[in-house]
Computed example of a mutant assay.
Amino acid sequence: MPQPDAGQIAGAASRLSQCRTRGELGRAIAEEAGRFSLYDLQRIGGGIRREVEALPEPYRSRVRPYFEEQIFGAYHRLMCSHRSGAFARMDDPIPDPEHFSAFVALIPRGCLDRKGSQTDIGFSKPLHTLFYYLVTGYTIFVEGGPGHPVGTPFPGGFAVERRGNEYYCPIRDKEEDVPFSICNVCPARQMEGV
């Protein structure tokens, strides 16, 4: 039996797959993200807070602002760029077409296959997971940044780093067996020695 949000999720993924430039993609993501109500955003924020509150201190306090930045900082930048018309000036191709195709392909299953998707971050609905993929797709394929913001701490004392024009992540290659993880399409490289 199809899930109630399956059509909207499949439609969003199909729409993104048709984009060829960073500007087209930014505009499409902004329009899809603009469909979320204030109530949806509050529920998504609540899911993130619940997830963070389950973490032990002092890690909880260190990671909280990065989780919020990853979702709502990206959403704010996305909507500001859309409203300012910035996407009209972005006519360069979407970087890394192979990873972009893989990203678009993982959206429907990552949102709807709830068994062990490990992408939820406490999200209660498949559409909330879609929001996660939308803002992460914006960060990676329009802005050209890593899926997790620079500075995001991970257990063991390591954090996402920027060195020149390259990004390094302590968990990049460790997520390969998590099929719906954004790490599988992230431009960051695996941090050496971790």
Rank of each mutant, 00 (worst) to 15 (best):
M1P: 13
M1I: 04
M1W: 02
P2H: 00
P2V: 10
Q3D: 11
P4L: 11
A6H: 08
I9D: 08
A13I: 02
L16A: 04
C19Q: 06
G23W: 00
L25K: 04
L25W: 04
I29F: 05
E32P: 03
G34W: 05
F36W: 14
D40Y: 01
Q42L: 11
R43D: 00
G45A: 02
I48M: 01
I48S: 01
E51D: 03
V52P: 02
L55A: 10
E57N: 13
E57F: 06
P58F: 10
R64V: 00
Y66S: 06
F67L: 05
E68W: 02
E68R: 01
E69F: 00
I71P: 00
I71V: 10
G73W: 06
G73T: 06
A74Q: 13
Y75T: 01
Y75A: 05
R77D: 09
L78Q: 06
L78D: 12
S81M: 13
S81A: 15
S81V: 10
S81D: 09
R83C: 08
A86Y: 11
M90P: 05
M90F: 14
D91S: 15
D96C: 15
F103E: 07
F103A: 07
R109D: 14
G110L: 14
C111V: 10
L112G: 14
D113Q: 12
R114I: 02
G116E: 12
G116K: 09
T119M: 04
T119Y: 03
I121H: 15
K125R: 13
P126G: 08
T129M: 09
L130D: 08
Y133N: 09
V135R: 09
T136E: 07
Y138W: 12
T139M: 10
I140T: 05
V142S: 09
E143Q: 15
E143L: 15
P146H: 06
V150H: 05
V150N: 06
T152Y: 10
T152P: 07
T152F: 14
P153W: 08
F154I: 02
F154A: 00
A159R: 13
A159H: 12
V160C: 07
V160S: 05
V160P: 00
R162Q: 13
R163P: 03
R163A: 13
E166A: 15
E166I: 10
Y167C: 12
C169M: 11
P170M: 07
I171R: 03
I171D: 06
I171L: 02
E175M: 06
E175H: 09
V178C: 00
P179T: 01
S181H: 03
N184D: 12
V185G: 08
V185M: 06
P187I: 07
A188C: 10
E192F: 14
G193Q: 13
